[in-house]
Design a protein around this nucleic acid. Structure first.
Lengths: 330, 330
DNA sequence: ATGAAAGCGCTAACAT
DNA sequence: ATGTTAGCGCTTTCAT
């Protein structure tokens, strides 16, 4: 067994001094302290990190419904990058399933393992919000806002307005929309906000949405493809469609291809997200800086950790209309 | 200060018995032990969790060079899914940079935080291997094999052979390849294996690789696009190209599009990976079950944790040739 | 600021 | 299975 007496001998001081030095007490010459730490290190004496002293875990938890989907992977990547520079570790908590959702917060488990939390696109229930608040940890939200927490997101409403205005400016009158399913497990404010922006521009342009021109899909290619099949089977087709995500637009394109329709010529499509493959698909879209969203959420956490009484911040990052070949003048 | 003597008094036993009971030693009546734990609890004596007794953290570390790139995000997703079912947490360690690479293993930090490690596509140096071995933790590798560790991957060589054979069977004679850069920071065995498989089929078919028909790119769209620009600027163009990844093939398609070339008609392209968007791109490819790779790595870890002396396993999962519209009979 | 020595809490050895 | 006792390592007190 290796003890402080050995260290004392090696450092040429008394055990008492070693004891004081190792615990960070006063009345120890800094040179002596350094010598002692060096000796302890070389002897492999288990120095309890100052982290434990402050009850710090040097770890931030990320709570996300998905890990591999584009948006979430990008956001996680941004968080990861910013936290790595600050030498903080990341604990990954996924709960796509209803199963275990409550357990996550109920257990004090999490409280002991992280210094802070970042949640991506998760609109918890009121109950969960209260639990999160009671954790008394710095918390940052990505992709949506709540007054209680710091958050960084985009203005979905404004982005949807820009997208729709683009279609209107191109002369389209019969404009359809592929919305997110509002029957989904949890309620994405995202979906509603994008749809509201769409509707507001339509109204301002003196247009109305033909119910036949609206379909619903999850935010993925497959379900979008099926939804588009549905829409294309109807009589009165729109000349342009606002898809609530790029991946929806990909699905729509696949469906159109199978129906022998060409994208800009027969129906214009505009997406939303700035997905990595949008350039490949030649898709006009509203790009959002997802990675930056993640980075900024991490920064806000870092600030809170550094200055615990720094104010809660709500931030909207700008979106960009990127015009490509999937939309054309009517 | 509250100590075991107080507990001893409260439980009506001697301090020695309390000491034994609290540390889970033998020769303690279970009733006595229960009484002692109850007394300790009521006095607020800090009982170190049984987790700590067994040195269990209920956490698995994932070491990966990227978090958001498709392959890595998928693999992480698979691991995550399998570990979540086993109620294990995930600590995410990223080191794309040279910076900090050594520090990760040197610090005993990691040893105290995880029960096991899963590393994705990282061929460490000999030195790092030794450090990993000395950690004495269950370790599983994804995407490559080393005899010292359990690993799950695909047979890159065989997959490349299948891909190349497909091109040969279609009657192509002038077959090019887009290889991974071997000047990369670390050495991907993946790159070499796929290239070797390609070369072996070429040779067996009595064909030779025209050096003009080989270009190098990183495993992403942009650099592949530039590499394809380079290849297309050369005189003698191939009629088919084996791209070492799907994303390379996307880049190649973009470049061809800009050069006014059509994909199957002018040059056939085959990819490798089974990327999510390959169907959208109508790309013939060698699909690999990345998510399953992650799941199986997690399972092998779970088995090792359950039965510490279970054998080290090396597993190859099959790849699948998926023929789409990007390759055609010559 | 440091050391000598007493004190305290836990553990290990031995006894029953 | 439990108590007694000696011992060990760390801390605290007090002296310098």
């Amino acid at each position: 067994m290796i003890g402080i007496q050995e260290i004392a001998i090696k450092a040429g001081v008394s055990p008492a001094t070693v004891s004081r030095a190792l615990r960070g007490l006063q009345h120890v010459n800094e040179q002596t302290r350094a010598k002692i730490f060096a000796a302890a290190e070389s002897l492999g004496y288990p120095i309890e990190a100052p982290s434990k002293q402050k009850g710090k875990t040097h770890t931030v938890g990320i709570i996300t419904p998905y890990t591999s989907r584009w948006y979430f992977a990008e956001a996680i990547g941004g968080v990861e990058q910013a936290l790595r520079e600050a030498e903080l570790d990341i604990l990954l908590y996924n709960f796509s399933q209803i199963h275990g959702r409550e357990k996550l917060f109920e257990s004090k488990h999490i409280r002991e393992r992280v210094d802070a939390l970042i949640t991506i696109s998760l609109p918890p229930t009121e109950e969960e919000f209260n639990t999160m608040l009671s954790l008394d940890l710095p918390i940052a939200l990505i992709g949506l806002h709540r007054p209680e927490f710091s958050s960084v997101a985009i203005d979905d409403y404004a982005g949807a307005r820009t997208a729709t205005q683009h279609l209107v400016d191109l002369g389209h009158k019969r404009i359809g929309i592929m919305s997110g399913e509002h029957t989904s497990t949890w309620q994405f404010p995202v979906t509603q906000n994008r749809r509201s922006g769409f509707m507001s521009v339509l109204e301002a342009a003196g247009l109305t949405l033909n119910p036949q021109h609206e379909v619903f899909a999850a935010f993925d290619i497959d379900s979008a493809e099926r939804a588009m099949d549905d829409l294309l089977s109807r009589k009165d087709r729109p000349t342009a469609i606002f898809c609530c995500s790029d991946e929806m637009a990909y699905g729509a394109m696949l469906s159109m291809r199978r129906h022998g329709l060409r994208c800009p010529e027969d129906i214009s499509l505009i997406g939303y997200d700035g997905h990595k493959m949008a350039e490949f698909a030649d898709l006009t879209t509203i790009a959002q800086p997802v990675r930056t969203l993640g980075e900024m959420a991490a920064w806000s956490i870092l600030e809170k950790l550094h200055k615990p009484d720094s104010p809660t911040k709500t931030l909207n990052l700008p979106t960009t209309l990127i015009v490509r070949g999937s939309t054309r003048q009517l």
